[in-house]
Write a protein that binds this DNA or RNA. Structure first.
Lengths: 229, 229
DNA sequence: AATAAATTCATACGTATGTTTTAAATCCTG
DNA sequence: CAGGATTTAAAACATACGTATGAATTTATT
């Protein structure tokens, strides 16, 4: 772990496969990419794919989770840090939202293809991913729902769930947009975009409920993450 | 148009194919559905698919456009009607948003599988659809952008474009959510959901800009609809 | 340098794909 | 009823798919 410069050849191959898979799966979807095309794009022998990952499905899962895990971890870290600094006070909504969004944006800057893969995967998750997706998302979702509930006591939980789903849709679209502009990195602009994304989402989340009673039945956030789905 | 009961056999076959394609393409994506599976699910002979549509791509295009055209038409009709009633005054933002959202919601109620197909298609459009998608969306988009510009003169056009993309993401997610709850139709609840979707989106669109200068460069709305893409 | 383990390679298997074809049925319209 | 349009069945087409195999080669360890 010490010297990151030297790597076994096998690690290079596996990483090339992951990077290529991230890009191609993001662009064409799981079924839109064949193992031959993938191996060729990664400049790797076809058999190396099964040697390193065993199957196409596993390669997809590992490609997705590799960064998704890190992003979610960073989310919870940011939220925890903000919580610590607040000394028990409810956090401002925009701050919570920023804890949600910033890791996505950062990941998108560092790895332009990743957000497209996320959008595809969350909007229409392959069935072989359901379980691990659920396991990955649930704890984080709970953290943020809790934070929002404390920050927005006037918004009923059911409505909050709906709004969080809408917010998720906005972030996904934002990620797709980001990966579409292959513009050279410009920290000023990136910060501006993040700010606007946060503003938009926080406004929606914090707006006064439009409906009075319990006309809104339970609508859990991302449908594909429900246990019964 | 008078007696809807009687139909030519050929029309029945083609419609069964379209309905089945809508459901299966929405669930598994273009590459996730084979013609044999599709024909079988539609209880139609395999050769009938090429007889009626010529190719899988054409079937996808026609499946998608069949309702998407109608939805967009309804959007522009609602907006035009609202404009007519406003006597030259800028429309309230929530009203414009409702003109955008209502047709999607109505379509989702009548045809539960459709919105999933829309979400998939708009978030990651197959390349053979780019052209017709662009042609279908551009005029409508212009109408609504114009309406929003009049209603929100304090929001710069670039920012408005970004926010519209985020709003689109929210609607897509909303549509996916809707098709996930296969709950029996309840007009009261449906109206409540629509109201909340409108409230969320309008709040985001109308919020005060978070950035001061021209740090936001041009960011055209849906990336896949740009001419250069 | 020798041995063992890890990795790469070309090739092949069985199956599935979208599409086409042929021929015989069945339907609808004029 | 005649005749064209539509549907069916079955088979074949070339191509692509995910995966497996076993030998060749590289890498690591002694």
């Amino acid at each position: 772990m010490a010297a990151a410069g030297k790597k076994h050849q096998s690690a290079v191959t596996a990483q090339r496969l992951l990077d290529t898979a991230e890009r191609l799966f993001g662009e064409h979807g799981y079924n839109g990419v064949g193992m031959r095309a993938l191996a060729h794009a990664a400049r790797v022998n076809l058999a190396a794919t099964t040697y390193h990952f065993g199957s196409k499905k596993i390669l997809y899962v590992e490609t997705f989770l590799r960064r998704f895990r890190a992003v979610n971890l960073r989310r919870s870290e940011l939220l925890a840090a903000a919580d610590r600094a607040a000394h028990g006070q409810p956090l401002p909504v925009e701050l919570i939202v920023e804890c949600m969004m910033r890791p996505s944006m950062e990941a998108g800057i560092e790895h332009p293809a990743f957000n497209k893969l996320v959008a595809r995967t969350l909007l229409a998750p392959p069935k072989f991913l359901h379980q691990q997706l659920q396991a990955e998302l649930e704890p984080n979702l709970k953290l943020f729902i809790g934070a929002f509930e404390r920050a927005l006591p006037q918004v009923p939980t059911d409505l909050l769930n709906l709004r969080l789903a809408l917010a998720l849709g906005a972030v996904l679209m934002f990620g797709v947009q980001m990966s579409a502009l292959k513009v050279k990195r410009d920290p000023r602009r990136e910060a501006a975009f993040l700010k606007e994304l946060v503003r938009f989402t926080a406004s929606g989340l914090a707006s006064a409920p439009a409906t009075v009673g319990a006309e809104l039945a339970r609508l859990k956030p991302p449908a594909h993450l429900k246990r019964t789905a």
